[in-house]
């Protein structure tokens, strides 16, 4: 009894530690005073101002399109790479998995500067395109690492059975293999999307002047003071995701149970 109470207290403390800054930001988004330091009364004016702030809206648009595009392309490249790796010999698969792990284990700052040097040397113009290339690069490993375990669990006999029963390779793949690895693909996509959305360091080194994501915009505002509209925007994003998660977790699970 004492043990479970102690455990609950511990969980609670960790929870407070992780959520204290988030709650602070949500509170700040309703703060009438422009500075972070003092509380000037409750207001929702920043939420209205947010949608009139073209710079923030542009940064939001950039961030979202980057996240969606990079996650989609990374999911495509990563998934077909997993399909290929499944039919490879052990050693070549190990080599490819090793390469997959490089961006995961390497420091983000090194990945960032290495890509910056690449784009500089090849004279590629810094802008939306370079950020997209960089994001795809660090997103592919997340997809592979979440699809690969699913691939390994597949029973190869089912695919062969489909072929024996006269289906074509493509048909057999989409009817037999694809449904089984779909959860892995989806979680890989979501992971990639989240990582792209939250990335700052790699974007910082691969962005060009004039193109900003929310992260880089916030970083340039750190010194001057963050515009309160930013707090409002992140509160909206956070609450939206929270509601979506609650919906996913608490919808009737009748279908899912086997």
């Amino acid at each position: 009894m004492i043990k479970t109470t102690a455990q609950k207290i511990y969980l609670g403390l960790i929870f407070i530690f992780l959520y204290a800054p988030i709650i602070t930001l949500i509170v700040l988004s309703f703060n009438a005073s422009k500075t972070r330091a003092k509380w000037g009364g409750f207001t929702t004016k920043w939420y209205a101002a947010l949608f009139r702030n073209e710079q923030i809206m542009q940064a939001l648009w950039n961030t979202l399109t980057l996240a969606i595009l990079s996650a989609l392309i990374a999911t495509l490249i990563g998934t077909i790479a997993c399909i290929a790796m499944q039919s490879m010999k052990r050693t070549s698969r190990a080599v490819l998995m090793g390469i997959t792990n490089i961006p995961m284990l390497n420091a983000e700052i090194v990945t960032g500067i290495s890509l910056m040097l690449l784009f500089l040397s090849f004279g590629i113009k810094f802008g939306f395109g370079t950020i997209l290339l960089a994001h795809i690069t660090f997103n592919i490993p997340y997809v592979i690492l979440s699809v690969m375990p699913r691939m390994k669990q597949l029973n190869p006999s089912t695919y062969e059975a489909a072929l024996d029963l006269g289906s074509s390779h493509t048909y057999a793949f989409f009817k037999v293999v694809f449904p089984d690895i779909l959860p892995g693909i989806l979680s890989g996509f979501l992971m990639a999307f989240t990582m792209s959305l939250d990335d700052f360091i790699i974007t910082h080194f691969t962005k060009g002047p004039g193109v900003d994501t929310l992260s880089t915009k916030i970083y340039t505002e750190v010194k001057k003071g963050i515009k309160p509209e930013m707090y409002a925007l992140s509160t909206i994003i956070f609450v939206t995701v929270l509601i979506l998660l609650l919906l996913v977790n608490y919808t009737p699970k009748g279908k899912k149970k086997k």
Partner: peptide
């Protein structure tokens, strides 16, 4: 505990510790 906080920007979360 772990994934949801990531949707609040990492820089803003760190900045909130300043406050």
């Amino acid at each position: 505990i772990f994934i949801l906080p990531m949707w609040m920007n990492f820089l803003l979360r760190t900045l909130a510790w300043q406050t």
